[in-house]
């Protein structure tokens, strides 16, 4: 750009009247030479500038990529941390519950963190009733779910909720009631159980999964439009969860 303006100046200079003397021509020629030198300088500067811009651009791209990767790593770390934290929390609440039990049970507590394998079979006779009723009830309910005894499991989860409505496992118990009905094919009841989870435990970590499963259940009932509403809610509220990813897939198959 700069170069072309300079050349235009030279053309105007050459168009001066014919009475110009040789000296003038000479001076003009010197000026032209000077200008040409300047143009070359300017061109060099322009090229340097372009190189510098490109270098800066490259650096920026690199930094962007680095930041993106760092962000990704960070997200993975966050996920891992959250998982670890949740597991830690579960263990702590489990221990708390055990410690709240009367002394004899607490004395028989098998320290879970150091719980080595019981070599050659099950626990000793004294250890068997160590789990406190709350944990025992919750475990029993899941054992019955896994056996396919869904009605019994529902009763036991209800029993758990009646006795322990606000432990760290209460929201899980409510979630499982939905799961039991779902496995039985009683879809309306499953939805109702999950709705109750949303109402009673609005801070539950089971919400993303429950809302997604509610969507799946609605689909099974042929209520696809309502299902899409649930999937959209999952994507908006819990975009980074596993349920969020699955909901996105449902919305953009």
């Amino acid at each position: 750009m700069i170069g072309r303006f300079a050349l235009a100046g030279v053309v105007i200079a050459l168009a001066t009247p014919a009475w110009a003397v040789n000296k003038d021509i000479e001076r003009l020629q010197m000026q032209i030479a000077a200008l040409q030198g300047q143009i070359a300088d300017l061109q060099r500067t322009a090229e340097d500038n372009q190189r510098e811009i490109k270098r800066l651009g490259d650096t920026l791209t690199e930094q962007n990529a680095f930041l993106r990767k760092a962000l990704q790593d960070r997200r993975l770390q966050d996920d891992a941390l959250q998982t670890a934290l949740k597991e830690f929390g579960d263990r702590v609440s489990e221990l708390e519950e055990r410690l709240q039990q009367p002394a004899p049970a607490a004395a028989a507590l098998p320290a879970p963190a150091a719980a080595g394998p019981e070599a050659g079979g099950g626990p000793g006779p004294g250890l068997a009733p160590a789990a406190p009723p709350s944990r025992e009830l919750y475990s029993q309910a899941y054992a019955d779910y896994a056996r396919g005894n869904y009605d019994l499991a529902i009763q036991e989860y209800r029993e758990y909720l009646r006795n322990y409505p606000s432990t760290d496992l209460s929201d899980n118990a409510q979630y499982w009631i939905g799961e039991c009905y779902f496995s039985k094919g009683r879809y309306d009841d499953a939805i109702e159980a999950w709705n109750q989870l949303f109402r009673d435990y609005p801070a539950s970590d089971k919400l993303p999964d429950a809302r997604y499963k509610k969507g799946v259940t609605l689909e099974r009932l042929g209520r696809r439009r309502e299902a899409l509403v649930e999937y959209r809610a999952v994507v908006e509220r819990y975009p980074n969860s596993e349920a969020g990813r699955k909901a996105r897939e449902k919305l953009n198959p």
Partner: peptide, 9 residues
């Protein structure tokens, strides 16, 4: 054990 998480070797 899937319910109690007790381990036997």
């Amino acid at each position: 054990d899937i319910a109690t998480r007790q381990v036997r070797q």
